[in-house]
Structures are given as structure tokens and as C-alpha cells.
């Protein structure tokens, strides 16, 4: 296994985000709901996914900006908790995720009418990002090479192949798992399935990287 060479290499691409301020501000939860409905998909993506790139090694209160703002600035811990538990890896499409966020907020406001108009001095600011992808010039053919590259690449590459690949490039398994399982890749469907699960654990990007390296090590040491 250690020496098995893929028919096609895996090539690492990293990415960076250029953030654009949309000038849309919500000072209360009702307005937040309205703006979530009309914001471009890129903005919903930014506030629910880019968190991982902005907090690559540690985690703030909740892993999406809506939940954190609601809890910290709108002082609504219940809604914060309900939004905070949302797992972006549960959704295959950004519009599904938007719909779920809106349903949670709308349901909450139906029951907590006072929360709808409670204003804050620190508004929620809508941002979207423009992703710039960068070829790192690193190609790997074996599991050992893959493991070593994952452990050392700039963390944006982990984000690019796990998060960007799923939502923006519609590679729902993410690039790593796709290559690990593919016949042209390493043909390791069990390892690939475990790598897919890594995204669901609620880890930081560095945590995901570490877990993937550990999974590779387990396969390598068993062979």
C-alpha cells in the first residue's frame, strides 16, 4: 500500500479570499432575516464557511458568523445556540443552507417577538469573498506523499480541497476523498469515507488537517 502509485497525481491548490463589504447592515434579528434572504449566495457562503479559513487553528464562539453575532451582539443566546449547531457539511447546496438558517430565525422570531426588534450598536455586516486559487506546484502519487504534503501545505490548501471543493466546485466529497477513492487515484474507498467524515466533526482547519494525517498514518502503518 505504501508504494502504490496513483494513475493520476493529486495536485495541491491553495486559496485566499478577498473580502468585499456589501454595505448591508442588520441591527436587529428581523433585519438580519430580511438581509439573509436577499444576500448573494457568496455572502451566505462566506458567513457560514469562511469561518474555517479565518480561524484555522482555533474556534470562536460558534462556527458561523450569524450565530456568533446573534449570541454576542443581539444578546440572544437561544437563537445563537440554534444557529451555532448548524453543520455546513450537512448541506450540499448553499440555497438549502440559506433556507434552513431563515427557517430557524423565522421560527424563533414567531415565538420570541421581543427579539425581533432588539437593536444593537454593533450591527451584523454582510461581506462576501472572492476566492483566488493558487497552484502550489505540489503533486503526489502515493499515500505517503499525500500524507506528507497535507501535513506541510499552507492551511488554505486544506480549506480549498475540503470546503471550496464541496460548495463552490460541487465536488461533494471534497477533493481529497475523491482522489483517495477514485480508481485513477489511490482506490481507497474506506479511507476516503473516513476523510469525508472529518468535515463533520466540528474541528478547526488545523484539527481537520491533523485528523486526516492520522487517518493516513493508520492506513500506512497497517500495510
Amino acid at each position: 500500500m505504501m508504494d502504490y502509485r496513483a494513475k493520476q497525481p493529486f495536485r495541491f491548490f491553495s486559496c485566499m479570499e478577498l473580502r468585499e463589504i456589501l454595505g448591508k447592515r442588520a441591527r436587529d434579528e428581523q433585519r438580519l432575516l430580511e438581509l439573509i434572504e436577499e444576500a448573494p449566495a457568496d455572502s451566505i457562503y462566506y458567513h457560514t464557511h469562511s469561518y474555517y479559513l479565518r480561524h484555522p487553528y482555533t474556534q470562536s464562539l460558534y462556527p458561523n458568523d450569524f450565530a456568533t453575532w446573534v449570541a454576542l451582539h443581539a444578546q440572544d443566546r437561544i437563537l445563537g445556540e440554534r444557529l451555532g449547531v448548524l453543520d455546513p457539511f450537512d448541506f450540499d447546496d448553499i440555497e438549502e443552507l440559506r433556507g434552513e438558517i431563515m427557517a430557524i430565525i423565522a421560527d424563533h422570531l414567531d415565538h420570541e417577538r421581543a427579539a425581533a426588534s432588539r437593536t444593537t450598536d454593533e450591527p451584523f455586516e454582510f461581506v462576501r469573498s472572492h476566492v483566488i486559487e493558487v497552484d502550489l506546484g505540489i503533486e503526489v502519487m502515493t499515500l505517503r506523499e499525500f500524507r506528507d504534503a497535507v501535513s506541510r501545505v499552507e492551511v488554505g490548501a486544506v480549506y480549498n480541497h475540503l470546503c471550496e471543493a464541496r460548495m463552490r466546485k460541487r465536488q461533494l466529497w471534497g477533493d481529497f476523498a475523491y482522489w483517495l477513492s477514485a480508481e485513477m487515484g489511490l482506490g481507497l474507498p474506506d479511507l476516503a469515507a473516513q476523510v469525508v467524515q472529518v468535515g463533520r466533526l466540528g474541528l478547526s482547519l488545523e484539527g481537520m488537517r491533523e485528523r486526516i494525517v492520522t487517518l493516513c498514518d493508520q492506513v500506512l502503518s497497517a500495510s
Binding site: V134, E154, A157
Partner: peptide
């Protein structure tokens, strides 16, 4: 800087 940053910047600079 964080791991891999300098290499990333060099690659970005190429663009």
C-alpha cells in the same frame, strides 16, 4: 508566519 505562507506568497506573486 504560518506554515507554508512564504511559498504561498511566492506562488501568488507569480500571478
Amino acid at each position: 508566519a504560518p506554515k507554508g505562507t512564504v511559498e504561498f506568497l511566492r506562488r501568488l506573486g507569480e500571478r
